[in-house]
């Protein structure tokens, strides 16, 4: 008996592939079912699958291969190790980090430290101190000028470019600019000059030292507080160049000194709140003429 689509479970499959024998095909075409199978087959071949955008898919795959790290496991491990290291280092750095307070030209501010000590920071000056554990190391670094009112306690010191000021509960002013000056207003301070083996210099109330060419000169004074904290600067036979420097601490100006002699001495004062008056009260008595060009002041005799 000849096989047909009902008895042979590969028959139709072979028919679709065109692999029936001639005889099988002739027999098959005679059946009623043949026409139905043929229609189903013909119609099926008219169907089509989904539309697929290959290039868009390729772009998508490229994007995803780039965003994912090639070796995620090792990457993640090293990433974690790196992050941990950075965290530890930055925490350590932060704990050991310093805080710096800066004053711009013409502005002053008062800083109260955690032991109650007060620092009046003058214009164009900065102080730096440890952010944490400051009490274990009561040291501040001063750049410029400040007036210190220090609570009683041990070991407060101020580092300056010219040396260290050790404090034993007191009030004092340090000016560390072109000249270095230390004034003690209350109590007692000790000054240890940098790079000098000489014994520390002790200052009590009313004592004033200046460093000129590495040598300490002694002076006396009467004031209760530094003049700058009251808004003016005073000079007692100081070279003009120091007066000009002082002016630039409070006013955003520069000087073009030309050929004037800046070593001439000046005695007097200027207030910090009015540039015009300050210039008049310092320059005119010295017979110096001045001309304002923006922030630049040109001096001539």
């Amino acid at each position: 008996m000849m096989k047909n689509y009902d008895t042979d479970d590969t028959f139709l499959g072979r028919w679709l592939a065109g692999e029936l024998s001639e005889e099988e095909l002739i027999q098959f075409k005679k059946t009623d079912a043949y026409k139905q199978f043929k229609l189903i087959n013909d119609e099926s071949q008219l169907l089509s699958g989904p539309d697929i955008n290959v290039e868009a898919a390729l772009q998508n795959v490229k994007k995803r291969t780039q965003s994912k790290a090639a070796k995620p496991k090792t990457f993640r491990l090293w990433f974690s190790v790196g992050m941990a290291a950075i965290l530890v280092l930055s925490l350590g750095y932060y704990m050991n980090s310093s805080k710096t307070i800066n004053n711009g030209i013409g502005s002053t501010q008062t800083i109260v430290l955690e032991d109650g000590s007060k620092i009046n920071l003058n214009a164009n000056s900065s102080i730096t101190y440890k952010r944490f554990f400051w009490k274990n190391n009561k040291s501040v670094t001063l750049n410029g000028e400040a007036y210190f009112t220090i609570s009683k306690g041990d070991g407060f010191k101020v580092e300056t470019s010219k040396g260290t000021v050790n404090v034993l509960g007191t009030q004092f002013n340090i000016k560390d600019r072109t000249t270095f000056e230390l004034k003690c207003f209350e109590g007692k301070v000790e000054f240890l000059q940098k790079n000098k083996s000489s014994s520390p210099k002790v200052l009590t109330k009313g004592m004033h030292i200046k460093i000129k060419k590495d040598r300490i000169e002694d002076y006396m004074f009467q004031d209760n507080v530094p003049n700058w904290t009251r808004g003016f600067s005073t000079f007692d036979e100081e070279p003009i160049q120091l007066v000009l420097e002082e002016l630039t601490q409070y006013f955003d100006i520069t000087f073009d000194t030309g050929n004037i002699n800046t070593d001439r001495l000046f005695s007097g004062r200027f207030k910090h709140d009015n540039l015009d008056l300050a210039l008049k009260s310092t320059l005119i008595p010295m017979g110096i003429e001045y001309e304002l060009k923006g922030n630049n002041i040109i001096l001539s005799e």
Binding site: T10, L16, A17, A33, F37, L39, I40
Partner: peptide, 25 residues
Amino acid sequence: IKAIERRMSKALKELREKLGAHIKL
């Protein structure tokens, strides 16, 4: 290939069973 031929045959038979009634020739 044999398995494929079987599956093809089965598919076609099932389609005819379902659609036979709709086919008017």
